[in-house]
Amino acid sequence: MTTFKLIINGKTLKGEITIEAVDAAEKEKIFKQYANDNGIDGEWTYDDATKTFTVTE
């Protein structure tokens, strides 16, 4: 398992979430669903070196 981080830079929601997953593709799906469930629609980036997804509205 690898630890992945999501950084949220939303208009109404900001924060960080850290979760373990098998791979980045699995985690991306979970993070995007979390963002969608919380009304966050923005630009996504991924840094493989730090295993960090960022979504910015």
Rank of each mutant, 00 (worst) to 15 (best):
K5S: 06
T3F: 14
W44Y: 03
F4N: 02
L6P: 01
L6Q: 00
N38D: 02
K27D: 02
D23Y: 11
D47H: 03
I17C: 15
N38Q: 10
K27S: 15
F31Q: 01
T2G: 05
A24R: 09
T2H: 08
I17P: 00
I40G: 01
G39V: 05
F53K: 00
I40N: 02
E43K: 09
T12Q: 07
K5I: 13
T50G: 02
Y46N: 00
V55T: 02
Y46P: 00
T54A: 03
D47W: 03
Y34E: 01
E57G: 08
E16V: 13
D48Q: 06
K51S: 05
D23W: 13
A35Q: 03
K29N: 10
T3A: 06
G10K: 04
M1G: 07
T12I: 11
N9I: 15
N36Q: 13
T52F: 04
E57T: 13
Q33S: 06
N36R: 14
D48I: 08
A21I: 14
A49L: 11
A25G: 09
T3G: 03
N9T: 07
A35I: 13
I40T: 03
T45S: 12
F31N: 02
T12P: 05
D47L: 01
I40P: 01
T54K: 03
K11R: 12
T2W: 15
Y46G: 00
K11V: 13
F4V: 06
D47E: 03
F53I: 03
D41M: 12
T45L: 05
D37K: 07
G42S: 02
T45R: 04
N38Y: 13
D41W: 14
I7C: 12
G15L: 15
L13Y: 14
I17V: 08
E28H: 10
D37Q: 08
E20F: 13
T52G: 02
L13F: 15
T12N: 10
K14L: 13
K27C: 15
V55Q: 04
L13I: 13
A24W: 13
T18R: 09
G10H: 04
K27V: 15
F53T: 09
K14E: 09
N36H: 13
A25Y: 08
K29L: 11
A35R: 05
K29F: 10
G15E: 12
L13S: 06
D23H: 07
K11C: 15
T52K: 01
G10W: 13
E28Q: 06
K11E: 07
T52A: 02
A24T: 12
G42T: 01
Y34M: 08
I8S: 01
E43M: 10
F31P: 01
T3Q: 07
I30V: 08
E28V: 10
K14M: 12
E26H: 08
D41P: 04
I7S: 01
E26P: 06
I7F: 06
T18W: 14
T56I: 09
K51E: 03
V22H: 10
I7W: 04
T50C: 07
I8T: 00
T54R: 05
K11Q: 10
A21M: 14
G39I: 04
E26D: 14
A25H: 08
F4I: 11
V22C: 12
V22M: 09
T54H: 08
V55R: 07
G10N: 04
L13V: 12
D23K: 06
E57L: 15
E20L: 14
D23I: 05
Y46K: 01
T12M: 10
A24P: 11
V55S: 02
W44Q: 00
D23G: 05
W44H: 01
E16D: 04
E16L: 10
K14R: 09
K51H: 11
F4H: 04
E28C: 15
T12W: 11
V22E: 09
Y46I: 00
K27L: 15
E16W: 14
E57S: 10
T18A: 06
T50K: 03
Q33L: 06
L6G: 00
E20A: 11
V55I: 10
D47K: 00
T52E: 01
T45G: 03
E20P: 07
D47T: 02
T45M: 06
T56K: 06
N36E: 12
T2M: 12
D48F: 06
V55D: 02
G39M: 05
A25R: 07
I40R: 01
A49Y: 06
N9Q: 08
T52W: 02
I40F: 11
T3P: 02
T56Q: 05
A49Q: 09
K51W: 12
T18I: 11
G42Y: 11
E20Q: 11
G42A: 06
Y34T: 01
T54E: 03
G15W: 15
E26W: 12
T50E: 02
G39W: 09
D47R: 01
T50R: 04
A24V: 13
E26I: 07
K51N: 08
A21K: 04
F53W: 08
M1K: 12
N36A: 14
D41R: 10
N36L: 15
T18E: 06
K14W: 14
V22R: 10
A21R: 05
I17T: 03
I30D: 03
N38V: 11
K29I: 10
D37T: 10
K5V: 11
K32W: 12
G10S: 09
A21Q: 04
T12E: 10
E26T: 08
N9G: 04
L13H: 10
A21V: 14
T45E: 07
T18Q: 08
T3E: 05
T12Y: 13
Y46L: 01
I17E: 01
F53G: 00
K14V: 13
T54G: 01
K11D: 05
T45W: 06
N9W: 13
V22F: 12
D47S: 03
D48S: 06
D37P: 02
Q33F: 07
G15A: 15
A25S: 10
G39A: 08
K14D: 09
E16Y: 13
D48H: 06
I8F: 13
E43P: 04
T50M: 03
N9R: 11
D23Q: 05
M1S: 06
I7E: 01
E28S: 06
A49E: 07
I7G: 00
D47Y: 04
